[in-house]
Every structure is written in C-alpha cells, then in structure tokens.
C-alpha cells in the first residue's frame, strides 16, 4: 500500500472559505460534546426512573417500565435516529410546521439528543434494576420495619446503595453514548465523525482525518472514564461492595 501521508492537511483552508480544517474538526467536537452531554442527562434521569419502576411492587408500573426498555433497546439506533428525524414530523403536522421555520440544525440536534438519550436510558434502566436487585432483601425489609414508605425506602435506602454499585457499568454506558453520538451523522448533524468524513471527501486524506477523529474520541472517552472513576471514589461507602479501588 502506497499512501502519501499528509498531516499538513489540517492547516489547509476548507472549501467553505475562511476556516481551516482543524477548526471544522473542533466545531464537530463541540457538537459531539453537546449532543453527548445533553443526551446523558436525559438518559440518566429517565434511566434511573424507569429502572426503579421496574423493581417496585405491583404490575402496572413495572410493566410500563419493561415496555419502555424493550422498545428503546430492541430497535437499532440507526433506525431510531431515522424515525425521530424523518418520520415523527410527518406524523405530527404542527411539529412539521414548526420545523419548517426553525434552523435545520436545531431539528437535527433535538432529534439526535432525544434519540440517543432515550436509547441509552433503556440500557441504564437495566443497570439500575440490576443494582437494586443485587441488594440483600434485608435492606428493603429493614426499611419497611422502621416505618419508611416505599418511596422513602427507595430514596433513603435502596437507591443510594444501588447507584453506587452501578457506577462502573454506567461508566461504560457513558463511553458508549459518546461513541454512539457519531450515528447523528446519518441525519446530517455536523459532529466529529461527519467532519472527519467531510475532510476525507474534500482532501482524500481519509487516514489523517480518521486518525485525528479516533484520537479525539479516545481522549473524550478516557476523560469520561476518569471523571466517573473520580465520582466512584468520592461516593464510595468504606467497607461496602462498591468501595472503589482505595
């Protein structure tokens, strides 16, 4: 294979005029981070709620929560992205009229955040459910014995312990979410992978473009990993199962 490496390509001016390729990559990185962070907030909030509901007594709430998980976990992410962006506005005429006037990027961003957030929430819900189930049954019973209501038992006894236990798998989910955000390029959001592809298309320096994108993804994922490890240590209960690496 005879490939002409050309690392200077990042300093070249992009055809859009006035910007250099490295600036486009940085702009793409901004979208990647924005989508990932907002989607993570949605995923965490919805995931903890749904995961908790899967373990409460009764039938209705656990059933609804299970349906949520199955829906968002079983449909491929690529298909969900397409549904949110192309199909949903066709089903809701008021939304479509709203989008006609809005900046097209806003619609792409909103669809990407919702899609990634809800997809990841299903996965987080399963982690949270597993965390709650892993607690000894005595904890729930002890909470009831001291007179706590179900909601109080979850708030003060079960969730604080369960969430500590699931920090390591949540770290994986956070890293997955960041990498999954590249799927947003299929609806045209100009995030990091989109920009790397674009750079490759214009200059044909594909290997340089994707090497840079890879390094950036590794750096973000590692940062997320370190941040979660820090949280894990900070919240650890000494002597308990999720004690961290102290």
């Amino acid at each position: 294979m005879n490939y002409h490496w050309n690392w200077g390509v990042f300093l070249q001016e992009a055809p859009e005029g006035g910007v250099r390729y490295w600036e486009l990559l940085v702009a793409g990185l901004g979208w990647t981070l924005a989508v990932s962070c907002l989607a993570w907030v949605i995923a965490l909030a919805a995931g903890v709620l749904v995961g908790t509901l899967r373990t409460v007594p009764g039938r209705l709430l656990p059933g609804l929560a299970a349906a949520w998980v199955e829906l968002f976990r079983n449909v491929p992410l690529l298909v969900q992205m397409f549904l949110w962006y192309f199909v949903l506005p066709e089903l809701l005429p008021p939304l479509k009229r709203l989008l006609a006037d809005a900046d097209p990027t806003t619609a792409q961003f909103a669809a990407a955040v919702l899609c990634l957030g809800l997809f990841t929430s299903a996965r987080i819900a399963e982690q949270v459910r597993a965390g709650i189930r892993s607690l000894p049954r005595g904890q729930r019973e002890a909470a009831a014995a001291v007179g706590l209501t179900t909601a109080q038992a979850y708030r003060h006894v079960l969730l604080p312990m369960a969430l500590r236990i699931v920090v390591p798998p949540l770290t994986s989910e956070a890293m997955n979410l960041i990498k999954n955000s590249s799927v947003a390029l299929t609806i045209g959001l100009a995030e990091l992978t989109f920009r790397a592809r674009e750079l490759g298309e214009y200059t044909f320096s594909y290997f340089e473009a994707f090497t840079a994108a890879t390094l950036i993804y590794v750096a973000i994922a590692m940062s997320a990993n370190r941040a979660m490890a820090w949280i894990e240590r900070r919240v650890a209960v000494p002597g308990y199962i999720a004690g961290g690496g102290r």
């Binding site: 055809p15 859009e16 390029l185 045209g188 989109f194 592809r197 674009e198 490759g200 298309e201 214009y202």
Partner: peptide
C-alpha cells in the same frame, strides 16, 4: 448529499 463536490 454529504461528501460530494457540490457542497463547496
């Protein structure tokens, strides 16, 4: 379409 020469 992304990546085609029509964009520039």
């Amino acid at each position: 379409s992304s990546g085609t020469t029509s964009v520039p």
